[in-house]
């Protein structure tokens, strides 16, 4: 009996030291990766609109249905689906608090959604202003009602991120270009609220494809005897 309280305290503390404190000490010492050739720094601490969009992402519970982690090729089809060019590692998330890894994929992974050509621009370089504009417009429409671009999607519509207002004079530059079946009543237009702009800014900033020494790019599985590569 005299061992009871010390025992349960020890059980708790050993678990905490081993799983939180030890890894925390190691992981908090990670530095951004500096490319020796280009002096490029990765990851960068995203500020401004993209960071505010994170709050919108959290507030609407996107993490309930979307993960943000790309697994190695032998763990699933993540890389084949081009959700990223390599598995994600701890360094990718070093500035995020809390991280939005997620545990359930009702919808696709979003770790690298900013680098995916969802709008079908067909451009090799999605970082140009024109491509970004096209992608942003696709995301606005998709958030306004996913059924417009993907008829069988079960994603909820996020209409409260948009404003339906009367057209005064010219139609607004950022008004959504909706197909007739989804368009507002004549004389009205749908424009994104600041929350939608933040959220889309955040989504477009998501890109974890920069190469890192601890994360190999897609490569055949090393241990063929486990058969992971074959069952992909």
């Amino acid at each position: 009996m005299k061992y009871f309280f010390p025992g349960i305290l020890a059980a708790f503390l050993i678990g905490w030291f081993g799983q939180i404190l030890l890894p925390y000490r190691a992981l908090s010492r990670i530095d951004p990766f500096v490319d020796a050739d280009t002096n490029e720094i990765y990851p960068v601490n995203v500020a401004g609109i993209a960071n505010q969009g994170r709050e919108v992402y959290i507030a609407n519970g996107c993490v309930s249905c979307h993960t943000q982690q790309v697994r190695a090729d032998y763990m699933g089809g993540d890389l084949e689906r081009n959700w990223g060019t390599r598995r994600t590692v701890a360094r990718d998330y070093m500035y995020e608090n809390p991280v939005l890894l997620g545990t359930l994929r009702v919808g696709p992974d979003l770790a690298g959604v900013g680098a995916r050509d969802l709008a079908g621009t067909g451009e090799a370089d999605l970082t140009t202003a024109a491509s970004q504009e096209k992608l942003a417009r696709w995301h606005y429409i998709h958030l306004y009602n996913p059924r417009i671009v993907s008829p069988d999607s079960n994603m909820p519509a996020y209409k409260w991120l948009f404003e339906e207002r009367e057209i005064k004079g010219q139609i607004s530059l950022n008004a959504l270009n909706l197909p007739p079946a989804f368009a507002p009543k004549p004389g009205y237009e749908i424009v994104p609220k600041p929350e939608a702009e933040k959220l889309v800014g955040y989504l477009l900033s998501l890109n974890k494809n920069h190469s890192l020494p601890e994360a190999k790019a897609a490569a055949p599985a090393v241990s063929p005897q486990t058969g992971g590569a074959a069952t992909k």
């Binding site: 678990g15 890894p23 925390y24 908090s28 998330y93 500035y95 608090n97 809390p98 991280v99 890894l101």
Partner: peptide
Amino acid sequence: LPWVKGVITAVNGAW
């Protein structure tokens, strides 16, 4: 804790 960042926050949650 505002200075705790990165995957350790997910580890904390899973723990």
